[in-house]
Design a protein around this nucleic acid. Structure first.
Lengths: 187, 187
DNA sequence: TCCTTTTTTTGATATAGATCAAAAGTTTTG
DNA sequence: CAAAACTTTTGATCTATATCAAAAAAAGGA
């Protein structure tokens, strides 16, 4: 979905507001493997996935590649603390497929919030969505067996399981790939 | 901190905006043990803790009391999915001390967002704060030993450790109270 | 198509932390 | 202040999942 369409679905935008959104966001296509941001950079953008799939990951203390999040179509992403506090991030954001992405700088986004109260509610809804996702994730992570966590993912985000490699899914769930492979094989 | 003070610290509110905030929120005192909301209720409020400490918890499938979050002074809380989608929550929110709490209904809150663009940015910041907390939490939960998780809590929220019972802390960290007790005893 | 690289599977072993049980300590309350 | 009701500690045992290692399978490139 394109940005104005998405926003229209979430709130009743005036014609003018729609035009403003149109110009505030930049639409770009990137190949699989492209990084939206990398460790040590300051992330100044909010991104919206029109088409494709992105993965945010980091390297743990022991040097292991750990997936923090996946983002599919119609979702917003950013390096939350980095873009808010203007400090370097420790995460990477990698596109796992050729993707179409919309982006806006934090400055421009704040400007929208300041000048049009239609966007205040919208901004709130967007972050709210992110927060809900996180709560679900935490719920599934805690006091659940590896198998329960995998089944919950399968139930709630079946398309991720189809689009993403086993190793990435395993680290997203906080389990090893060997364990996930054994779960899948049903043994 | 009182609500207008808090908001003044976060954004430059006009005198009028400040007055609106003052009247939109209700300030109340509750004794230790009071529930702000309970399972099966629809949570229609956003709460702000001026003084005290709250715990959100739920009963797991196996009937175990699991702490999801703690909230101390100057933080906002709500049953995110319930208040947003107007559906019953599965969580409880219990005050662990005599507390002073400000509250606003979601309807009034949305009204603020609609009518004053100063609040759009503020609402965004508030939820943003919640999101950051969650990210930290997830980071500490995943691929960390029980001891690492406890040490991270001790480092980032030392006051919680002082104010809250061992059992509540253990389930917050996703470990058993026996394990936490052993960690504390240093064995 | 073959060769290289990456991903997944399988096997053997080790271990952190769960579970169960009960004692010790602390707080609440009538 | 004594009894009851929690909370924390300690001990013994068990188990899910990590770790290490290597084979098998799949994907990507020349």
């Amino acid at each position: 979905m394109k940005i104005p369409e998405y926003f229209k679905k979430k709130a009743n935008l005036s014609v003018e507001a729609e035009r403003i959104v149109q110009t505030a966001f930049t639409r770009e296509e990137f190949p699989k493997g492209h990084f939206l941001f990398k460790r040590d950079e300051i992330c100044r953008h909010i991104y919206f996935i029109e088409q494709g799939i992105a993965r945010i990951f980091y390297y743990s203390d022991s040097g292991k590649d750990v997936t923090a999040w996946f983002f599919q179509e119609d979702s917003f992403l950013t390096a939350i603390d980095s873009f808010y506090y203007n400090k370097p991030t420790f995460e990477y954001c990698e596109l796992l497929e050729n993707s179409t992405v919309h982006s806006i700088t934090y400055t421009d986004f704040e400007h929208l919030l300041d000048t049009h109260n239609e966007f205040g509610k919208l901004g709130f809804h967007v972050i709210h969505d992110m927060a809900r996702q996180m709560i679900d994730y935490i719920f599934n992570l805690k006091f659940q067996t590896a198998e329960d966590k995998y089944n919950a993912l399968l139930l709630n985000y079946p398309t991720i399981v189809q689009r993403v490699s086993l190793g990435h899914i395993a680290s997203y769930l906080g389990i090893t790939q060997e364990t996930l492979s054994r779960i899948r094989s049903g043994k």
